[in-house]
Structure formats: structure tokens, C-alpha cells
Design a protein around this nucleic acid. Structure first.
Lengths: 186, 186
DNA sequence: TATTATAACTAATATGATTAGTTTTTCAAG
DNA sequence: CTTGAAAAACTAATCATATTAGTTATAATA
């Protein structure tokens, strides 16, 4: 068999293109050009543009999950939450296009994407055990943490924050405030 | 002058299409079909597809701003924050496609969009006066509130939450926790 | 060395965006 | 009324991209 590209090479090319030029610049034409092949040849590796984007979303969430898990190593409680939160935002800053590929997926109902998402949820639930929340509260809290880091990263990516005030400090402040709200009841 | 469509009619058609079919289904072709005109005729009202999306983003953020302002009427302090947060998420639920048009804008550097965004920030800062935060903390807190509501709405829209636990309760829980963190220092 | 699966290719078609240039209609000025 | 200008529709042509069908070339392996 003629050994040329494989799927991962295509995905990495698309990811780099997305991070460098923007997610909306991903077209089969632009990816093919970057790989120096003709456009239809990509169909040997991915199922069209929709397939490429779906695979890219999966690639993205798995990479994110790994980095979040790594950030939690050797930490616990509030310290672990801060580390994970910072890692999340850092991932989006380093991989803006790839992150958009993940959020740009029509929805998260794809089983593989859901599985990776569940691992992130499980990681957060595990860290939250130190807070001894009842199960329902723990779910609410995971949703809160995810909303905070995704919302923050997403708004920052869109240049939604005026740049006069340092954004790193904002992230820390927000996480501290939320965690304070978890611990000091009333 | 021949009186036919105007820009607002085009925008409303596109908004309805986005909310009903999804933001990605907005094309000049689909909008023209809905309006029963030929595609190139749209160029009399908007500057191509990019222009339409930019106008739609502006239309969206202004509408959102109005509904947030309305939600704050007659309320203050924490109660006002909850009301605004719920109104934000409610807007996204009622106008998923329009909200995506707003977040899908390449960035918020457009002056008109920034102006509308600043009004939302000003509204939140005004409500936060009751908390007597120092100015920098107030900025961080506004960013926190925006991150929470945008992140929550965005994840919910993408079906990012398992549906076993009620999402309305999650939103209340998150806002309560964050506000608790603001008030009970340490 | 011959076979075969794979991965590239060319060619053709469809949809959508855009531009250029034309026609039609309505309002308002004469 | 008539007529002329402006606005808003149109047709036609071009370009880019995605997709499908069918073909060719190559490399692993039998």
C-alpha cells in the first residue's frame, strides 16, 4: 500500500492551521494545501469536512483532559482546583483554534466526546471529595467550575475583557471567590 | 425609490433561521430563500455574508443587554444579580442561534459591539456597588459573573451537562455560591 | 516477481459567495 | 401628468469549496 499520510497527520495539520489562522480557516482546501496533496485525497483519511471537524473535536477534548489530569497530580483540595482551572485556561490560550474545534462541535452527544467529557467531570468530582459535599451539590459544583473556566477562557479568547486589568489575576480571583463560597457556608 | 425589504427585515429573518435551524445554517442562500428573493439582492441590504453576521452579532448583544437591564429593574444586591443571571441564561435558551451569532463574531473589537458590551459591564458594576468592593475587585467580579453565565449557557446549549440533575437548580446554586464567596470574606 | 490493497490522482457536479451590469418600480420634482 | 433619479430587485458570469465517481500508481507481502 502506498504509505503516505495517516489520519493523525491530517488532524495535526488541521489543528496547527486552526491555532495559527483561526478555526474558521479550516477547509479541506486549506488542509490539503498545507499537506501538499489534492483536496479529494483527504477523503482517504477523514469523512469529509464534517468528519474532520468531529475528529478534531475529539482530539481536542482528549488533549485537554490529559493536561487537566496532569495539572492535578500531587495536589488536592482547593489547590488542585486552582491548578486545574489555570491549566484549562492555559490550554485555550495555547490552542485557541483547537479549542474552538471542540466547542464548535454541534453538540457533545457523540459517545467518544461524551466519554472524554465524563473523565473531566470525574476528575473534578474526585478533587471535590475533599470538600465533603453531598452528591447533588457536588454535581452543581462541577457545573460551576466548568462554567467558570470555559466561560472565562471563551470570553478572553473573543477579546471580551478590557485589557487594563490583568486577566490572570481575574481568574485567580474568580476561582478563590467561588471556592470561598463553597467552604464558608452562609 | 422601490420599497421592499429593509435591513431589519433581513436581520430578523436570519435570526429566526438561526434560532430554528442553527447558526451554521445561516447562508445568504438560505436567507434569500426564506425572504423569497434571489441571493444577490441581499447585497442591497447587507455587506455579504460577513456583513450579515456582524450585524446579527450586534442585534443580538443589544437585545441581550435590554433584557438584562429589564431583569434588574426594581431589584438590588444579590437579588439583582440572580435575576440578571437567570435572564442571561433564559435569553440563550430562547435564542440559541442568535446567541451563537454574537459569540461567533471573530472578536468583540468592533466598536458598536464593544459599546453594547460595555453597557452590560456597567450594569453589573452598578449592581455590585451594594457590595462595596474596591474598584479592581469589582472588575474581577464582573468578569466572574460574565464567565459564569456565559459558560453555563454555552455548555448547556452544547448539551454539555448530563440531564439527570436539574440545570435551573445548578444555575441558582452556582450564583449563590459565587455571591456567598463575595460576601463572607475568608 | 506478481498480486492486491491503499492512497494518491483527474474529472465532473453541486452549492454558495461575490461582482458586474441590467431592469423595474416608486417617489418626487417639474 | 410626466419624467427622471434612486433604490431594490433581477440575470449572468466567475470563483471557491465540497463531494462523488472512477482511474492510476505504489508499496507491502505472498
Amino acid at each position: 500500500m502506498r504509505r503516505g499520510l495517516d489520519k493523525m497527520t491530517v488532524l495535526k495539520a488541521a489543528a496547527e492551521l486552526a491555532d495559527r489562522e483561526g478555526f474558521d480557516k479550516i477547509t479541506l482546501a486549506s488542509v490539503a494545501k498545507k499537506l501538499q496533496i489534492r483536496l479529494p485525497s483527504l477523503y482517504n483519511h477523514v469523512e469529509g469536512l464534517a468528519g474532520l471537524k468531529k475528529e478534531l473535536a475529539l482530539y481536542s477534548i482528549r488533549k485537554l483532559k490529559n493536561q487537566l489530569a496532569e495539572a492535578a497530580i500531587g495536589k488536592s483540595g482547593a489547590e488542585a482546583l486552582y491548578s486545574i482551572g489555570i491549566a484549562y485556561v492555559s490550554f485555550v490560550r495555547r490552542h485557541p483554534g483547537l479549542y474552538e474545534a471542540m466547542m464548535g462541535a454541534p453538540d457533545f452527544l457523540n459517545p467518544d466526546i461524551q466519554a472524554a467529557g465524563n473523565e473531566i467531570v470525574a476528575l473534578l468530582l474526585h478533587v471535590l471529595e475533599a470538600f465533603e459535599l453531598d452528591p447533588i451539590n457536588a454535581i452543581h459544583t462541577v457545573r460551576g467550575l466548568r462554567s467558570i473556566v470555559h466561560g472565562f477562557a471563551s470570553l478572553e479568547l473573543r477579546k471580551g475583557f478590557n485589557m487594563d486589568v490583568n486577566t490572570d489575576e481575574s481568574l485567580i480571583h474568580i476561582l478563590h471567590t467561588y471556592v470561598a463560597g463553597l467552604t464558608c457556608k452562609e
